[in-house]
């Protein structure tokens, strides 16, 4: 190696082992530590937009104030819903976005209790979100997944669900039934799609069977 030309920057400590060199050059070692610190700082700075982007969907843009995500959607003239009947209604999700395709469609069950009183249920079972079906003869909603069943007023009848069906807020606007929709109803997000004071858990004990006659107080907008 001695025949090689010396690099101008090379010092006299060439005979030392690399570790010893590093120890001898406390300035370089210090600069390396400094560079680690610098990269840590830059990394932290870079993490802000990266993590912010990743967590973007969790930060709700609650344009609707306390109503949360979504908007009011018309379901059709009220006279399309006969009193005492429960009907399946499809609508376009107000939060439908680019490339959603068919998944931008939503279905709900509309029950007209009386002339001015409605109940609009999400089709998603309160257990694990499968689509419940209405059976007018037995006046039950039944879930195909794990056998959850609900009475006509949406209260829990049997099976694994721990509460009744999720309800949308509704109002009657110029003879049109309108609901506030936009969020997939689940146990955590239901508070923004049904009455806030509705108890989360509605399990009835076997000793006190359900009273299917009682009507839930609908939310009037």
């Amino acid at each position: 190696m001695s025949e090689l030309l010396k690099h101008p920057g090379e010092s006299e400590t060439n005979t030392l082992s690399p570790e010893a060199k590093a120890a001898a050059h406390s300035r370089r070692a210090f600069l390396f530590k400094l560079s680690l610190l610098l990269n840590g700082a830059v990394g932290a700075l870079l993490a802000v937009p990266l993590v912010g982007y990743l967590l973007g969907p969790t930060m709700r843009k609650s344009s609707g104030g306390d109503l949360g995500v979504g908007a009011w959607v018309g379901l059709g003239p009220v006279n399309e819903f006969p009193v005492g009947e429960t009907r399946l209604v499809d609508f376009e999700s107000p939060v439908k976005s680019l490339g959603d395709g068919e998944t931008g469609k939503v279905a709900c069950w509309v029950r007209r209790v009386s002339d001015q009183q409605f109940q609009v249920f999400a089709i998603n079972c309160a257990h694990l979100g499968c689509p419940v079906r209405w059976f007018s003869e037995s006046k039950l909603f039944m879930c195909p997944c794990h056998g959850g069943a609900y009475y006509e007023d949406g209260s829990r009848a049997s099976g694994p669900p721990e509460r009744g069906l999720f309800e949308y807020r509704y109002k009657v606007d110029n003879g049109t039934l309108t609901i506030h929709a936009g969020e997939l109803p689940t146990l955590a997000t239901q508070a923004r799609c049904s009455e806030k004071d509705k108890p989360l858990v509605q399990i009835q004990s076997a000793a006190t069977p359900a009273t299917p006659g009682k009507e839930a107080e609908p939310w009037q907008g």
Binding site: L55, P57, R60, V95, K96, G104, E183, T189
Partner: peptide
């Protein structure tokens, strides 16, 4: 919202 990438299930 994190799982779904938004308020609903879609694109």
């Amino acid at each position: 919202h994190m799982v779904l990438g938004g308020p609903t299930l879609g694109g």
